[in-house]
Amino acid sequence: MSADANSQSDVETVVETVVEVQKLLNKIGEFVLHRELDFEVRAGEVMTLVGGSGSGKTQLVRVILGLKRPSAGLVRVFGVGWDDPSYARVRAARERMGMLFQNGALYSAFTVYQNVAFPLRERGGLDEEAIRAIVYAKLAQVELEPKHADLLPASLSGGMVKRVALARALALSPELLILDEPTAGLDPDRSDAFVRLIKRMRSEYRFAVLMVTHDLDTLHDLSDRVSVLADQHIIASGSIDEVRSVPHRFIENFFGGERGRRAFTAA
């Protein structure tokens, strides 16, 4: 019994750096998108990735998620590379992270309940009663009512889709949550509410967050650290104030613009 428990903890190593990217070279055809890119997300922190349109933020996230194989360089999530030969290690790493896609990416053939239950069922080891309890607890956490559980994604509003997707991303109590434009397409009220929701969930579960966003308010409210992607690599990384003081055209435009000043002076 205890030997088994140990083998489990072998698979799930405790790491301080949740996401580690070193000297990444990422080409699309002959076009070099990333070169000499270093990036990391530490356990428990909220790391925000910003960058101009077309700077390759989404591609970087896809590399981190293992959806795209980098041309060269090292990518480790929970200390595991996606090309690791051990299926168990890769799978264990996958189960420790949750992803919130920009448009939710809910399974349209499944109800809300089935969508949230899906990762739990795939992981196995839980009976239906426990799954049901977790699903309803998750739905309650994202402020959805049990009566919403049997709706299909097509009949949900945009804000509800986001919340169901968050519930699904958090179903396995992940240690890393990846958010792609979490507040895009939400009105300011809902986007504030969504930020509050993520903050509250974080205070309970203490997961690390890797967030891609354009929204300065969201960035300001959530981030512990910020990394700026420009000129094919991370040009600055650190707290918001540290990053803002770096002299670079993109940073000056991004934080120094009218919207930037408003977000940062209001606080």
């Binding site: 009663e129 049901r132 309890a133 309803y136 607890a137 309650a140 309970e204 579960y205």
Partner: peptide, 18 residues
């Protein structure tokens, strides 16, 4: 108290009749 909320939510989740 850090885990209280999670426990409460779980027990409420158990109570929901499907």
């Amino acid at each position: 108290p850090r885990y209280g909320a999670m426990l409460t939510q779980a027990s409420q989740g158990l109570l929901v009749e499907r």
